[in-house]
């Protein structure tokens, strides 16, 4: 089942005193498979938030259509199956965590007992049960992000739309959010999240869509996008004489000195074998050998720069 589908989705905003039209999203054709974690990446202002706002009915598209779980987004009833976490923790800060979640439960027309049970369950999931009677104004950013995820889950949605769920969090906060996202995938939920923290996207996502200047320039699994082949190999050695170093430099892509150890980067298996041969012959000591592939960040920067140059 396709969880999210958009066809020719476009949006323009008018800005400034002259009300000049600026294109925020251009002819977006996107498909997110049910059960996937889909990473929506791109630089600031690429149109990620605009897409999510259209899907949740906060803004209207200038043209194009979108469907969630097979139903048109203009149908308010589809929101029963969606959970949404907007960017930045902006919530009713005069409410306590419990009141806050209770309020959202009511918006789904849930019964009192049903809400109470769900609220307890969610407070456990996001580890905030101990602060359930504290007003949100006293919450840290990480806690707000977690209570935000909890409000998105109150209706047990099939699809979760998370806008920058990890931004501004410390490593522990990020780890917690990642853990929750993975647990939700295990429960069979589809998750579409936007992010510019690419290492998180790499770690979590089944598929990735890359957006720049309102255009979707690439979409696919990480293996397809980055290539499953090895991009480069990093060799760390020590006890290398000057003559040996000169010989290595003729083969290696890059040689640097790090903590009195030599870090050699080579391209491909052949060069690796040649460098290892040189090290062996000259009694160098091999410390480590790490194959590396292109990171999503390198890929994105390359793509965006190419896009900008076009």
């Amino acid at each position: 089942m396709i969880a999210v589908k958009t066809q020719g989705l476009s949006k323009e905003f008018r800005t400034g005193f002259t009300m000049k039209k600026v294109s925020a999203l251009h002819n977006l054709n996107l498909e997110v498979e049910g059960g996937d974690i889909f990473g929506y990446v791109g630089p600031n202002g690429a149109g990620k938030t605009t897409t999510l706002k259209i899907l949740t009915g906060l803004i209207y598209p200038a043209s194009g259509n979108a469907w969630i779980l097979g139903r048109d987004i203009r149908d308010v009833a589809i929101k029963k199956d969606i959970g949404f976490l907007p960017e930045g923790p902006y919530f009713y800060d005069y409410l306590t965590a419990k009141e806050f979640l209770y309020f959202y439960g009511q918006l789904f027309g849930m019964r009192k007992r049903e809400i109470e049970k769900k609220v307890d369950e969610l407070l456990d999931l996001v580890e905030l049960r101990h602060v359930k009677d504290i007003q949100l104004r006293r919450f840290s950013k990480g806690m707000l992000q977690r209570i935000g995820i909890a409000q998105a889950l109150i209706n047990d949605p099939k699809l979760l739309l998370l806008d920058e769920p990890m931004s501004g969090l410390d490593p522990i906060g990020r780890a917690k959010i990642k853990e929750i996202i993975l647990r939700l995938k295990e429960d069979g939920k589809t998750i579409l999240f936007s992010s510019h923290i690419l290492s998180d996207v790499e770690m979590l996502c089944d598929r990735v869509g890359i957006l720049t200047q309102g255009r979707l320039i690439d979409v696919g699994s990480l293996d397809t996008l980055l290539g499953s082949g090895i991009k480069s190999i990093e060799i760390v050695t020590s006890h290398i004489e000057k003559d040996t170093l000169r010989e290595i430099e003729t083969v290696a892509e890059k040689v640097t000195l790090r903590d009195e150890k030599l870090v050699i980067v080579v391209n491909g298996e052949e060069d690796k074998d040649r460098v290892l041969g040189i090290i062996n012959r000259n009694n160098g000591r091999l410390i480590s050998l790490t194959p590396g592939r292109k990171t999503l960040e390198e890929y994105l920067v390359e793509k965006v720069n190419r896009g900008a140059a076009l």
């Binding site: 706002k53 949740t56 009915g57 906060l58 308010v76 009833a77 929101k79 029963k80 969606i82 949404f84 907007p86 930045g88 902006y90 919530f91 009713y92 959202y104 918006l107 789904f108 027309g109 935000g148 409000q151 998105a152 209706n155 739309l161």
Partner: peptide, 14 residues
Amino acid sequence: DKKTIYTVIAKPVH
């Protein structure tokens, strides 16, 4: 302004 409306409109609320 505080964007609290985002989470409400994203729910099945007209």
